[in-house]
């Protein structure tokens, strides 16, 4: 069987028309990647580099002004052969969601309906897909909430009565209770304390192991990536700039941006000052020519300002888009 997800040359732009002129924010620009079965793929990158946009496009949760301009997103659930998610009909898509593909979106603690108790959200969305009688279903939900260190009585609460972290865990529970084949999670643990976060990550990992499912996991927390993911992709300004098995990436990052990202992590007990990246994030409506990182890159060369570096596999499974790396210059 091939990969469960293959993204090919994907371009997704926010296209807005102001007084007749088109303004394009190229938030996902020519991204190609594959995710295997039984794999946790991590995605990291700068804020506003297009991670959420990529994820939305993959989950086909886009709405204008975001449009897919080019490329394909092929899912292959249960080895039925790859199908482009954008060619599915509405009923086919609905049948896929929750059972095969579930999507925890960024800021997901706010998707819960404010005037309905949590229990209703579970009944509305998960009940149909589980073919269980109601009492057994509720028991399953309660048990599942337990894995996320939530007490059963959150089911009777309204969203505003829960803390941010509790709501976030409720949406994680909602997205995982049907045990889908492919879980897309956009910053699902940002509001959790480290103890609970560890529990949640263990739950995701266990679920993934038991089911042999795949997870696409976005977070800013590089330590989470190091501990959870099998492979890691790094995005900068709408492009994938580096991709490698997680351990190899941390051991020897090849892209200067990745190297900076790893170096900027503060640690308890380490007092050396850390600094953010100099300069401002590129404007995706008119990104710099050539390598989009060149205005901020310590290794920038002449060629970087003109030619866009392409992804090259420099070590087994280790792809990077950088002129310096291609010449063997390490950041």
């Amino acid at each position: 069987m091939g990969p469960i997800l293959a993204v090919e040359g994907l371009k997704a732009y926010y296209q807005m028309r102001y007084f007749g002129t088109l303004r394009e924010v190229r938030a996902v620009d020519d991204i190609t990647l594959e995710i295997q079965r039984d794999e946790i793929y991590g995605l990291a990158g700068e804020s506003s580099s297009g991670k959420s946009t990529l994820i939305k496009t993959i989950a086909r949760a886009i709405r204008p002004p975001l449009n897919v301009v080019d490329g394909a997103v092929r899912f292959d659930f249960a080895g039925q052969g790859p199908r482009d998610i954008y060619t599915l009909s509405a009923p086919e898509l609905a049948a896929t969601r929750w059972r095969h593909l579930s999507y925890i979106m960024q800021g997901s603690m706010n998707v819960l309906n404010p005037v309905r108790r949590i229990r209703h959200s579970f009944v509305d969305f998960a009940f149909r897909h589980m073919s269980l009688p109601m009492p057994a279903f509720l028991r399953r939900v309660e048990e599942h909430l337990g894995h996320l260190s939530l007490r059963p009585d959150v089911l009777e609460s309204f969203p505003h009565e829960l803390s941010g972290g509790m709501r976030q865990r409720v949406t994680i529970a909602l997205a995982t209770v049907c045990r889908p084949d492919f879980i897309i999670a956009d910053e699902p643990t940002t509001a959790l304390d480290v103890v609970v976060q560890k529990g949640v990550l263990e739950m995701i990992r266990r679920l993934q192991r038991e089911m042999g499912s795949s997870v696409l996991f976005v977070t800013h927390d590089m330590a989470v990536h190091a501990n959870l993911t099998d492979r890691l992709g790094i995005m900068y300004a709408g492009r994938l700039v580096e991709e490698a098995p997680t351990r190899a990436l941390f051991r020897q990052p090849l892209h200067p941006y990745t190297a900076h990202l790893i170096r900027s992590l503060p640690r308890i007990g380490d007092d050396t000052p850390r600094h953010g990246l100099e300069g401002r994030p590129p404007n995706l409506a008119s990104p710099p020519p050539g390598c989009r990182f060149h205005p901020r890159c310590p290794l920038a060369m002449e060629v970087c300002q003109q030619t866009t570096p392409v992804m090259q596999e420099l070590a087994p499974g280790h792809r990077v888009a950088c002129h310096a790396a291609a010449q063997g210059i390490l950041p």
Binding site: A61, R97, M105, V111, D124, T171, A175
Partner: peptide, 12 residues
């Protein structure tokens, strides 16, 4: 219908 908001998350 406010439920359509959850549909963005992939609700049926």
């Amino acid at each position: 219908d406010p439920r359509s908001r959850l549909a963005r998350m992939g609700g049926g």
